[in-house]
C-alpha cells in the first residue's frame, strides 16, 4: 500500500467512527430523559458529524478522485466502512448510551492527544480542534456514569449491565493493523498499544467512584477495521443513505 493510500484509509476510518457514533446519538433527538440531556446528546452528535466532515474532506482530497465528503458518507456499503463495532451498537437505555460514550470518549481523548503530535499537519490540526470537544464528551459521560452507578438501586443495576454488555467491544479499540503499523514509523499514526494501560486506569477510576465493577477481560469481538461489522451497521446505512441511494442524480 502506498503511503497516500494508507493515509486515505486512516483518515476515512476515523471519520467512520465519528459518523456512525454521531448518527446513533442523533437518533436520540426528542428522546432524552430530560430536555437538557436531549440537547447535550445532540450537541455531541453535532460535534461528531463536524469531525466526520473534516476527516472525509481530507480523505477525499488524498484519494484524488474528485469525490466529495458526501460521496464517502453516502455511497459506500457496509464492508467498506471501518468504524469500530462499539460505535454502531444500539442506544439501548440511557445507561447503554452513557457506557458507550464513556468507553469511546475516554479512548478518543487518549488517541487524539497523540494524534495532535502527528507529522501529518491536517490530521494534527483536526485532532487539536476535536480534542477540545472530546474533553467535554468525556466529562459528560463520566459524570453520568458516576451519578447512575451511585444513584438508585435501579440505576446502579442498569449502569452495571450496560458496562458489562459493551465491554466485549472495547478490545478492538487497541488493535494495530497494517495501516497503523505502516504509518507509525512515519510519525503519522498513533501507537495504540501503550494507550491501553491509561485507558484501563481511567475507566477503573470512574467505575470505582461510581461504585461499579470493572468487568473481567473475556472474549473480545473484533473485525471492524477489516469491514466485518455487527448486523447493526447495515440498518444504520440503509436509513442514513436512503435519499442519496434512491435519487442518485439529485444534489441536496
Amino acid at each position: 500500500m502506498t503511503k497516500q493510500e494508507a493515509i486515505y484509509k486512516y483518515a476515512l476510518r476515523l471519520g467512520d467512527d465519528a459518523l456512525i457514533l454521531g448518527h446513533r446519538l442523533s437518533e436520540l433527538c426528542s428522546r432524552g430523559p430530560i430536555l437538557e440531556e436531549d440537547l447535550a446528546l445532540t450537541n455531541i452528535s453535532l460535534d461528531l458529524i463536524g469531525r466526520t466532515q473534516a476527516l472525509f474532506i481530507y480523505a477525499a482530497s488524498i484519494e484524488g478522485k474528485g469525490k466529495t465528503e458526501d460521496d464517502l458518507a453516502y455511497r459506500r456499503s457496509e464492508n467498506n466502512y471501518g468504524n469500530h463495532l462499539i460505535t454502531e451498537q444500539p442506544n439501548g437505555d440511557f445507561a447503554h448510551t452513557i457506557a458507550r460514550q464513556l468507553f469511546i470518549s475516554s479512548f478518543e481523548y487518549l488517541f487524539y492527544s497523540e494524534l495532535e503530535k502527528s507529522k501529518d499537519e491536517t490530521l494534527s490540526a483536526i485532532a487539536k480542534k476535536t480534542n477540545k470537544e472530546i474533553k467535554y464528551h468525556m466529562q459528560h459521560a463520566s459524570d453520568w456514569t458516576i451519578r447512575l452507578g451511585d444513584g438508585t438501586n435501579e440505576s446502579h443495576k442498569r449502569m452495571q449491565n450496560a458496562i458489562n454488555d459493551l465491554w466485549m467491544f472495547t478490545g478492538e479499540l487497541f488493535e494495530m493493523d497494517e495501516i497503523d503499523a505502516q504509518l507509525l514509523p512515519e510519525g503519522i499514526s498513533v501507537d495504540l498499544i501503550p494507550l491501553k494501560t491509561n485507558w484501563n486506569n481511567y475507566i477503573k477510576t470512574v467505575l470505582t467512584e461510581a461504585t461499579l465493577k470493572v468487568p473481567e477481560d473475556g472474549y473480545m469481538q473484533t473485525g471492524s477495521r477489516k469491514g466485518i461489522h455487527t448486523e447493526n451497521l447495515g440498518h444504520i446505512l440503509s436509513e442514513m443513505q436512503y435519499l442519496q441511494r434512491a435519487y442518485p442524480d439529485a444534489k441536496w
Binding site: I34, I146, G151, T152, S155
Partner: peptide, 11 residues
C-alpha cells in the same frame, strides 16, 4: 427517563 431523573436526585 424517570429512572434517570430519580438517579440524579438520589445521587
Amino acid at each position: 427517563g424517570s429512572w434517570v431523573r430519580d438517579a440524579a436526585v438520589a445521587y
